[in-house]
Design a protein around this nucleic acid. Structure first.
Lengths: 191, 191
DNA sequence: GCATTTTCTTAAACTAGATCAATTTTCTTT
DNA sequence: AAAGAAAATTGATCTAGTTTAAGAAAATGC
């Protein structure tokens, strides 16, 4: 059950058997069915979620009720409202399951304790966050510099697995356009 | 000269005198006048830059020759083409001075060695990158969910010092609009 | 201090994408 | 399998932001 997350850590750092046991003991397994809210603003995000299977989405709900998708977390990804989780401030972003999902979750206290007991984890998370920054820069740039049709094609290339698992309005929201306009873009592209 | 960067590290971690000396020895002081290119695609980004004074900008130049600003780095900030610096791949973003600037720079080898010799630095950089992610999420959200006038007002609030130090076309590029349109927005707001 | 380049402004025509509204298709639930 | 709800399509109209162009203002170099 915890094998995937141990594998994930081992991508970047080495772990002793004791450390693996400690990690296993700290992460709680949680099975959640689709469309469940995991973080609901303004509640404080209590957990960092690691996705074993399924998919999560993080989005902002603006004053008009429009949903703006920040990111998706398929298998092997982490997700939470990071600012809320780390600083124990009110969350601003929803986190939800878009499919039945299996998660490993950890509280802030457990997270701190793990970093204290296994200092190498700082190394793992440093690298994880570095990569997240690089990915985010690219995403921002896409929004700033390209039209929707181009953005959609890049999305398809980057997440070929996700295309058929996500409702279309969520992809539209991720690309930063209305479902109506996205529908037109798709039909134009397919012709 | 290296006092600022030591102070910066000490915001998040403790350092011994020896460690401070090691850091001082690893970062090279560099004075650069304005409008100098520090990273030029597709050259590999050789340094991570810490800004003592002045200001840097990171931007992407698209195929039409349009400049898309990803971020600014005033005093106390770090900047480089992170992907290029870390993975030794071809850079994609320009890094330039927008003012005469004083920098402390470190090569990839020195950076790795520092992290090896002072493991706590992993902790510092983990926190630094966490905060960068939180900031970037916010920026992405602004672009996705608000109109330019609103974005501009938020920019003013967030970087009151920068407003008068940057040419207007750079701010426009940061906000994701043309200089022409930005000029209109400004005059509309001031009335 | 004058000339040249760069930046900023204003205006008119244009386009990517939004909004509103109605219809069809697909997914859920029983 | 039927009914209801949610998601996707299509069309008409509207708007935020672009493009092109030309002139005015600032900044820079000599």
């Amino acid at each position: 059950m915890h094998a995937t997350i141990i594998q994930e850590f081992k991508k970047h750092i080495q772990l002793t058997v004791e450390e693996e046991a400690l990690i296993t003991a700290s992460f709680r397994y949680k099975k959640v069915r689709r469309n469940q809210v995991l973080v609901q603003p303004p509640d404080i995000a209590l957990y960092e979620h690691f996705v074993i299977s399924g998919c999560l989405v993080e989005y902002y709900l603006d004053d008009n009720g429009t949903q703006h998708t920040l990111s998706f977390a398929p298998q092997g990804w982490w997700m939470t409202d990071l600012r809320s989780f780390l600083m124990k401030q009110e969350s601003r972003y929803f986190v939800e399951t878009v499919e039945d999902s299996e998660l490993l979750i950890v509280t802030r206290e457990q997270y701190d304790e793990l970093l204290r007991k296994i200092p190498l984890l700082n190394n793992y998370f440093r690298i994880l966050y570095q990569n997240a920054i690089i990915g985010q820069e690219e995403r921002l740039l896409n929004v700033l510099s390209t039209k929707v049709d181009e953005r959609y094609l890049r999305f398809l290339k980057k997440y070929p697995q996700l295309e058929n698992r996500l409702p279309q309005y969520l992809i539209a929201s991720y690309l930063g356009v209305t479902p109506e306009f996205f529908s037109r873009v798709k039909s134009k592209i397919s012709r």
